[in-house]
Amino acid sequence: MSKRPQPEPVQVVKQRRDAALTALAGGVPYIQFLGIRFDRRGDELTGILPFRDDLIGNPMLPAIHGGVTAAFLEMTALISLSYLWLWEDVETGRIEVDALEAGDLPRLPKTVDFTVDYLRSGLPRDAYARARITRSGRRYASVQVEAWQDNRDRPMAQAMAHFLMPLRED
């Protein structure tokens, strides 16, 4: 009977997964411009949008610009989808972490359409977003994404997006 293989050391796993995420999100200038970060728990990502005065759309209320909210949702959907799409290749070593770190990124999915519902005005404080990949096919993907602030059960906005997936090179 063959011996069960030893599990990988946790720091190796973490380094690989974090490197993949950093390579994905760190390479997009608009993510840096808005100041969006991603928190990773296993393969689940949470987008974080720290509040800044120049994100305001309505100075009277004040409220976060609807365009910022839309961009935050779209970005969270795109990165979550890409991360899940890359996950297996990163885990099996088909994509080398060194290559990712060197900026050798695979092509990202392209947004086909994006529909956002504004549920509550965005308050001048941090916002969070999580996406659910409802379908990830060979060619098209459907993603639902939701953003909230103080209370997870009172979302500020939700969106539905369709993406065109890059062609796999195999």
Binding site: P29, L34, G57, H65, G67, A70, A71, F72, E74
Partner: peptide, 11 residues
């Protein structure tokens, strides 16, 4: 990025 286009369309 599409998000910047979204912000423009929204405004």
């Amino acid at each position: 990025h599409g998000g910047a286009v979204s912000a423009l369309m929204d405004t």
